[in-house]
């Protein structure tokens, strides 16, 4: 890859991550603060952020730790909350033709929700290359570590972020991304079924199962509506390769 296109890949990765940073920062800062409050040491908080890198499940882990729940059930809860990543991994792995084995192994460590969504969008637009992927990952990861540390150190200073709508950036960001996929086959049926099932599960079984079950329902719809002669996917793959 030439120096110029490498630079473009890096700058695109950082640029695409920018709106996410504003959303990630309060979550991670609050996590840092909560972790300390629940009795974790600063080093343990930092270790969790460095090695797990999945904020929702970390909240649950810290919460359960505080309640003195057995270790195996804490680990199981974290696994359940993060289970949706299995689908991300299967889906985005197909666009990682340009990645070496070790690059893939490392890339999957960074596969958080926005990383997945941005990578899918990138793969559909211009193909997914490691430089872009890791530039995006580094931007979000470093922000995440820095802001959670700041939250742990200055937790008591965090004021209500609702006034600026910061707490609502992630849902908006994901909405924008979903709409960006509106040209994919069966977009509308998948959208409707996933949304309805997610809501039904959310209000009955409860979170986080609405994500996995709502998502799976949408996948079933896509599979059922799929036709062998529609070659759109094949073309999409060629474009990504």
């Amino acid at each position: 890859m030439s120096e110029i296109s490498r630079f473009a890949e890096i700058s695109d990765g950082v640029k695409d991550a920018a709106p996410v940073l504003v959303a990630v920062a309060p979550f991670s800062a609050v996590f840092g603060a909560v972790a300390i409050e629940q009795g974790l040491s600063f080093q343990e908080m930092l270790l969790a952020c460095l090695t797990i890198y999945a904020v929702a499940s970390q909240y649950v882990m810290v919460e359960l730790l505080g309640q003195g729940v057995p270790a195996w059930s804490v680990v199981l809860s974290v696994f359940a909350i993060n289970f949706r990543h299995v689908l991300y991994s299967a889906a985005i792995g197909r666009s990682m033709g340009n990645f070496s084995g070790p690059q893939k192994a490392l890339a999957f460590f960074f596969l958080v929700d926005p990383q997945y969504a941005a990578s899918e969008a990138r793969a559909a637009r211009s193909g997914l290359r490691p430089t872009y992927y890791f530039a995006y990952a580094a931007t979000v990861y470093v922000t995440w570590i820095v802001t959670s540390s700041l939250g742990a150190l200055f937790g008591s200073l965090i004021e209500n972020v609702e006034r600026y709508g910061v707490d609502f950036i992630l849902p908006l960001y994901f909405t924008g991304l979903v709409v960006g996929f509106h040209k994919r086959p069966s977009f509308l049926p998948v959208l409707v079924v996933s949304g309805v099932v997610s809501l039904a599960v959310y209000f009955t079984i409860g979170t986080p199962w609405h994500i996995t079950l709502g998502g799976l329902a949408g996948l079933v719809v896509a599979a059922v509506l799929s036709r062998p002669e529609s070659d759109e996917l094949g073309q999409l793959e060629q474009k990504n390769a």
Binding site: R84, L87, Y88, A90, A91, R94, D113, Y116, A117, E120, F168, P171, F174, T175, L177, V178, F181, R184, P185, S186, F187, V190, L191, S194, G195, V196, V197, S198, L199, Y202, T207, H210, I211, T212, L213, G214, G215, L216, A217, G218, L219, V220, V221, A222, A223, V224, L225, S226, R227, P228, S230, L233, L236
Partner: peptide
């Protein structure tokens, strides 16, 4: 091809499932 179609629908399906509750669990502004 059905598995491919399902994988291609992952972003729409999962992200929709992720966002859907935030439409109904907040206020009308959200």
């Amino acid at each position: 091809h059905r598995a491919k179609a399902a994988l291609s629908a992952v972003p729409t399906a999962i992200l929709t499932a992720l966002v859907a509750p935030s439409i109904f669990t907040n206020g009308s502004a959200e």
